[in-house]
Protein backbone atom coordinates (compact mmCIF):
# COMPACT_ATOMS: atom_id res chain seq x y z
CA UNK A 1 0.00 0.00 0.00
CA UNK A 2 1.59 3.21 -1.20
CA UNK A 3 0.10 6.70 -0.89
CA UNK A 4 -1.14 8.51 -3.99
CA UNK A 5 1.41 10.99 -5.37
CA UNK A 6 1.67 14.36 -3.64
CA UNK A 7 3.88 17.42 -3.56
CA UNK A 8 6.06 17.56 -0.46
CA UNK A 9 7.02 20.75 1.36
CA UNK A 10 9.27 20.86 4.40
CA UNK A 11 9.28 24.29 6.08
CA UNK A 12 11.63 25.09 8.94
CA UNK A 13 9.71 27.94 10.62
CA UNK A 14 6.08 28.61 11.56
CA UNK A 15 5.95 31.46 9.04
CA UNK A 16 7.24 29.23 6.26
CA UNK A 17 4.75 26.58 7.27
CA UNK A 18 1.82 29.01 7.13
CA UNK A 19 3.00 30.19 3.71
CA UNK A 20 3.30 26.60 2.49
CA UNK A 21 -0.22 25.83 3.74
CA UNK A 22 -1.55 28.95 2.00
CA UNK A 23 0.28 28.07 -1.22
CA UNK A 24 -1.02 24.51 -1.06
CA UNK A 25 -4.57 25.69 -1.67
CA UNK A 26 -7.60 23.63 -0.78
CA UNK A 27 -6.12 20.17 -0.93
CA UNK A 28 -3.27 20.48 1.51
CA UNK A 29 -2.59 18.27 4.52
CA UNK A 30 -0.39 19.25 7.41
CA UNK A 31 1.77 16.39 8.65
CA UNK A 32 3.02 16.34 12.23
CA UNK A 33 4.48 12.97 13.25
CA UNK A 34 2.60 11.22 10.45
CA UNK A 35 1.51 8.29 12.60
CA UNK A 36 -2.16 8.79 11.73
CA UNK A 37 -1.82 10.63 8.41
CA UNK A 38 0.56 8.20 6.69
CA UNK A 39 -1.65 5.16 7.43
CA UNK A 40 -4.76 6.87 6.05
CA UNK A 41 -2.80 8.02 3.00
CA UNK A 42 -1.57 4.47 2.45
CA UNK A 43 -5.15 3.26 2.59
CA UNK A 44 -6.00 6.11 0.15
CA UNK A 45 -8.61 7.38 2.59
CA UNK A 46 -6.71 10.63 2.15
CA UNK A 47 -4.97 11.66 -1.04
CA UNK A 48 -3.88 15.28 -0.60
CA UNK A 49 -2.18 17.15 -3.44
CA UNK A 50 0.29 18.71 -1.04
CA UNK A 51 1.75 17.55 2.26
CA UNK A 52 3.36 20.16 4.50
CA UNK A 53 5.73 18.31 6.84
CA UNK A 54 6.28 20.14 10.14
CA UNK A 55 9.06 17.75 11.16
CA UNK A 56 11.79 20.37 10.83
CA UNK A 57 9.93 23.26 12.48
CA UNK A 58 11.96 23.14 15.67
CA UNK A 59 10.19 26.12 17.29
CA UNK A 60 7.08 23.91 17.59
CA UNK A 61 8.87 21.43 19.85
CA UNK A 62 9.29 21.39 23.60
CA UNK A 63 7.51 22.20 26.85
CA UNK A 64 7.96 25.48 28.69
CA UNK A 65 6.83 27.13 31.91
CA UNK A 66 4.71 30.22 31.28
CA UNK A 67 3.82 31.29 34.79
CA UNK A 68 0.22 30.23 35.31
CA UNK A 69 0.40 27.53 32.65
CA UNK A 70 2.71 25.03 31.05
CA UNK A 71 2.88 25.27 27.28
CA UNK A 72 3.38 22.20 25.13
CA UNK A 73 4.61 22.78 21.58
CA UNK A 74 2.41 21.08 19.00
CA UNK A 75 5.32 19.07 17.57
CA UNK A 76 6.52 17.72 20.91
CA UNK A 77 6.60 13.96 20.51
CA UNK A 78 4.66 11.68 22.84
CA UNK A 79 8.00 10.33 24.04
CA UNK A 80 9.24 13.80 24.93
CA UNK A 81 5.98 14.61 26.74
CA UNK A 82 6.39 11.39 28.74
CA UNK A 83 9.82 12.31 30.06
CA UNK A 84 9.15 16.01 30.59
CA UNK A 85 9.52 17.22 34.20
CA UNK A 86 7.02 20.10 33.82
CA UNK A 87 4.34 17.71 32.59
CA UNK A 88 5.14 15.34 35.45
CA UNK A 89 4.83 18.15 37.98
CA UNK A 90 1.80 20.06 36.74
CA UNK A 91 -0.18 17.72 34.51
CA UNK A 92 0.70 14.09 35.27
CA UNK A 93 -2.62 13.13 33.70
CA UNK A 94 -1.12 13.93 30.30
CA UNK A 95 1.84 11.63 30.90
CA UNK A 96 -0.42 8.89 32.24
CA UNK A 97 -2.59 9.00 29.13
CA UNK A 98 0.33 9.44 26.74
CA UNK A 99 1.95 6.31 28.07
CA UNK A 100 -1.05 4.35 26.80
CA UNK A 101 -0.97 5.83 23.29
CA UNK A 102 -0.23 3.12 20.72
CA UNK A 103 3.28 1.73 21.28
CA UNK A 104 6.86 2.79 21.78
CA UNK A 105 7.72 3.26 18.10
CA UNK A 106 4.59 5.29 17.41
CA UNK A 107 5.21 7.44 20.52
CA UNK A 108 8.70 8.19 19.20
CA UNK A 109 7.23 9.84 16.08
CA UNK A 110 3.69 10.84 17.02
CA UNK A 111 3.14 14.28 18.49
CA UNK A 112 0.97 15.89 21.14
CA UNK A 113 -0.40 18.52 18.75
CA UNK A 114 -0.85 16.09 15.90
CA UNK A 115 -2.98 13.78 18.03
CA UNK A 116 -5.17 16.69 19.16
CA UNK A 117 -5.55 18.20 15.69
CA UNK A 118 -6.42 14.77 14.28
CA UNK A 119 -9.26 14.69 16.85
CA UNK A 120 -9.98 10.99 16.69
CA UNK A 121 -12.83 10.38 19.17
CA UNK A 122 -10.96 7.26 20.34
CA UNK A 123 -7.74 9.19 20.79
CA UNK A 124 -6.51 9.47 24.37
CA UNK A 125 -5.38 13.07 24.48
CA UNK A 126 -8.51 15.03 23.44
CA UNK A 127 -10.48 14.01 26.56
CA UNK A 128 -7.43 14.77 28.69
CA UNK A 129 -7.12 18.25 27.17
CA UNK A 130 -10.81 18.77 27.80
CA UNK A 131 -10.57 17.71 31.45
CA UNK A 132 -7.59 20.02 32.01
CA UNK A 133 -9.36 23.00 30.37
CA UNK A 134 -6.48 23.31 27.91
CA UNK A 135 -6.25 26.26 25.52
CA UNK A 136 -5.24 25.80 21.91
CA UNK A 137 -3.04 28.48 20.36
CA UNK A 138 -3.67 28.63 16.63
CA UNK A 139 -1.72 30.57 14.01
CA UNK A 140 -3.47 31.73 10.86
CA UNK A 141 -2.67 33.37 7.54
CA UNK A 142 -0.25 36.24 8.00
CA UNK A 143 0.79 34.91 11.39
CA UNK A 144 -2.28 36.07 13.34
CA UNK A 145 -2.77 34.13 16.57
CA UNK A 146 -5.96 33.17 18.35
CA UNK A 147 -6.68 31.01 21.37
CA UNK A 148 -9.42 28.40 21.37
CA UNK A 149 -10.62 26.80 24.62
CA UNK A 150 -10.70 23.00 24.59
CA UNK A 151 -14.48 23.06 24.91
CA UNK A 152 -14.69 24.77 21.50
CA UNK A 153 -11.79 23.03 19.77
CA UNK A 154 -13.37 19.65 19.07
CA UNK A 155 -16.22 20.23 16.65
CA UNK A 156 -17.12 16.85 15.17
CA UNK A 157 -15.67 13.49 14.13
CA UNK A 158 -12.05 14.18 13.09
CA UNK A 159 -12.98 17.86 12.88
CA UNK A 160 -11.63 20.75 14.94
CA UNK A 161 -12.04 24.49 15.06
CA UNK A 162 -8.88 24.81 12.94
CA UNK A 163 -9.87 26.73 9.83
CA UNK A 164 -8.37 26.74 6.37
CA UNK A 165 -4.81 27.98 6.41
CA UNK A 166 -4.53 27.60 10.18
CA UNK A 167 -1.97 25.69 12.20
CA UNK A 168 -2.01 24.47 15.80
CA UNK A 169 1.10 25.99 17.39
CA UNK A 170 0.95 25.08 21.05
CA UNK A 171 -1.35 24.03 23.84
CA UNK A 172 -1.53 25.85 27.17
CA UNK A 173 -2.31 23.72 30.21
CA UNK A 174 -3.36 25.95 33.12
CA UNK A 175 -1.61 25.09 36.38
CA UNK A 176 -3.99 23.97 39.10
CA UNK A 177 -3.99 25.50 42.57
CA UNK A 178 -5.10 23.46 45.55
CA UNK A 179 -5.19 19.78 46.29
CA UNK A 180 -5.76 18.15 42.90
CA UNK A 181 -5.50 14.54 41.88
CA UNK A 182 -5.73 13.09 38.39
CA UNK A 183 -6.23 9.72 36.76
CA UNK A 184 -6.75 8.29 33.27
CA UNK A 185 -8.72 5.05 33.16
CA UNK A 186 -8.71 3.26 29.82
CA UNK A 187 -10.47 0.10 28.73
CA UNK A 188 -8.95 -1.90 25.88
CA UNK A 189 -9.19 -5.49 24.80
CA UNK A 190 -5.58 -6.04 23.73
CA UNK A 191 -2.18 -4.32 23.87
CA UNK A 192 -1.68 -1.13 21.82
CA UNK A 193 -5.40 -0.99 21.02
CA UNK A 194 -7.58 2.08 20.83
CA UNK A 195 -9.76 2.50 23.91
CA UNK A 196 -13.30 1.19 23.73
CA UNK A 197 -14.02 3.87 26.34
CA UNK A 198 -11.66 5.87 28.54
CA UNK A 199 -12.15 8.45 31.27
CA UNK A 200 -9.88 11.32 32.31
CA UNK A 201 -10.63 12.58 35.81
CA UNK A 202 -9.26 15.67 37.54
CA UNK A 203 -10.47 16.08 41.11
CA UNK A 204 -9.95 18.73 43.79
CA UNK A 205 -10.45 17.68 47.39
CA UNK A 206 -11.23 19.98 50.25
CA UNK A 207 -11.93 19.00 53.86
CA UNK A 208 -12.65 15.37 53.03
CA UNK A 209 -15.11 16.20 50.28
CA UNK A 210 -14.81 16.54 46.53
CA UNK A 211 -14.90 20.27 45.84
CA UNK A 212 -14.66 20.05 42.08
CA UNK A 213 -14.36 17.33 39.45
CA UNK A 214 -13.66 17.58 35.74
CA UNK A 215 -14.28 14.46 33.74
CA UNK A 216 -13.36 13.94 30.10
CA UNK A 217 -14.83 11.01 28.18
CA UNK A 218 -13.01 9.28 25.31
CA UNK A 219 -14.95 7.54 22.53
CA UNK A 220 -18.42 8.33 23.88
CA UNK A 221 -19.49 10.26 20.77
CA UNK A 222 -18.03 11.96 17.71
CA UNK A 223 -16.03 14.32 19.93
CA UNK A 224 -14.54 14.02 23.41
CA UNK A 225 -17.09 15.05 26.03
CA UNK A 226 -17.25 16.36 29.56
CA UNK A 227 -19.43 14.24 31.83
CA UNK A 228 -21.28 17.33 33.05
CA UNK A 229 -23.99 15.54 35.02
CA UNK A 230 -21.43 13.47 36.92
CA UNK A 231 -19.32 16.57 37.52
CA UNK A 232 -22.33 18.35 39.02
CA UNK A 233 -23.17 15.35 41.17
CA UNK A 234 -19.61 15.15 42.44
CA UNK A 235 -19.31 18.81 43.40
CA UNK A 236 -19.54 18.83 47.19
CA UNK A 237 -20.02 15.05 47.42
CA UNK A 238 -18.33 13.08 50.15
CA UNK A 239 -15.00 11.67 49.02
CA UNK A 240 -16.11 8.14 49.80
CA UNK A 241 -16.54 5.07 47.61
CA UNK A 242 -20.33 5.29 47.94
CA UNK A 243 -20.46 9.00 47.18
CA UNK A 244 -18.34 8.60 44.08
CA UNK A 245 -20.21 5.52 42.89
CA UNK A 246 -23.54 7.33 43.15
CA UNK A 247 -22.29 10.31 41.16
CA UNK A 248 -20.61 8.14 38.53
CA UNK A 249 -23.97 6.61 37.60
CA UNK A 250 -24.76 9.78 35.67
CA UNK A 251 -21.49 9.71 33.69
CA UNK A 252 -23.13 8.63 30.44
CA UNK A 253 -25.93 11.22 30.50
CA UNK A 254 -26.11 13.15 27.27
CA UNK A 255 -23.66 10.89 25.43
CA UNK A 256 -24.27 9.24 22.07
CA UNK A 257 -21.54 6.64 21.59
CA UNK A 258 -21.38 4.59 18.43
CA UNK A 259 -21.93 0.86 18.11
CA UNK A 260 -19.21 -1.05 16.33
CA UNK A 261 -17.41 -4.40 16.31
CA UNK A 262 -15.90 -3.70 19.72
CA UNK A 263 -18.98 -2.64 21.61
CA UNK A 264 -22.62 -1.66 21.42
CA UNK A 265 -23.62 1.85 22.47
CA UNK A 266 -25.33 0.70 25.68
CA UNK A 267 -22.26 -1.28 26.67
CA UNK A 268 -20.13 1.85 26.18
CA UNK A 269 -22.53 3.82 28.35
CA UNK A 270 -22.24 1.20 31.06
CA UNK A 271 -18.45 1.29 30.74
CA UNK A 272 -18.43 5.09 31.06
CA UNK A 273 -20.11 4.79 34.46
CA UNK A 274 -17.76 2.08 35.70
CA UNK A 275 -14.62 3.79 34.42
CA UNK A 276 -15.71 7.16 35.80
CA UNK A 277 -16.12 5.61 39.22
CA UNK A 278 -12.66 4.08 38.99
CA UNK A 279 -11.02 7.19 37.57
CA UNK A 280 -12.54 9.55 40.14
CA UNK A 281 -11.77 7.15 42.98
CA UNK A 282 -8.13 7.02 41.94
CA UNK A 283 -7.93 10.76 41.30
CA UNK A 284 -9.41 11.43 44.76
CA UNK A 285 -6.67 9.27 46.25
CA UNK A 286 -9.00 6.63 47.66
Amino acid sequence: MIPAPFAYVRPTTIDEALQAVADGGEDVKIMAGGQSLIPVMRLRLAAPETVVDLGRVTELRGVRDDGDAIVIGAMTTHHDVLVDPLVAQHAPLIAEATETVADRQVRARGTFGGALAHADPAGDLPAVALALDAEFVVAGPGGARRTVPAADFFVDYLTTALGEGELLVEVRIPKLAGQWGMHYEKFTRVAQAWPIVAVAAVVRRENGAIAEARIGLTNMGPTPLRASAAEAALAGAAATPDGIAAAARSAAEGTSPSSDLNAQADYRQHLAQVLTRRAVTAAAGL
Binding site: G34, Q35, L43, Q105, V106
Partner: peptide, 22 residues
Protein backbone atom coordinates in the same frame (compact mmCIF):
# COMPACT_ATOMS: atom_id res chain seq x y z
CA UNK B 1 -0.78 -0.84 8.77
CA UNK B 2 1.62 0.29 11.55
CA UNK B 3 0.50 -2.49 13.86
CA UNK B 4 2.96 -5.35 13.73
CA UNK B 5 6.35 -3.66 14.04
CA UNK B 6 8.13 -6.12 11.71
CA UNK B 7 9.56 -3.16 9.77
CA UNK B 8 11.11 -1.52 12.86
CA UNK B 9 14.45 0.20 12.24
CA UNK B 10 16.39 2.83 14.17
CA UNK B 11 16.09 6.36 12.83
CA UNK B 12 18.78 8.50 14.45
CA UNK B 13 19.04 5.87 17.17
CA UNK B 14 15.33 5.59 17.94
CA UNK B 15 13.06 2.68 16.98
CA UNK B 16 10.40 3.63 14.42
CA UNK B 17 8.06 1.70 12.15
CA UNK B 18 9.59 2.27 8.73
CA UNK B 19 6.26 1.62 6.99
CA UNK B 20 4.96 4.77 8.71
CA UNK B 21 7.84 7.07 7.84
CA UNK B 22 8.33 8.63 4.42
Amino acid sequence: TSNCGACTVHLDGVAVKSCTVL
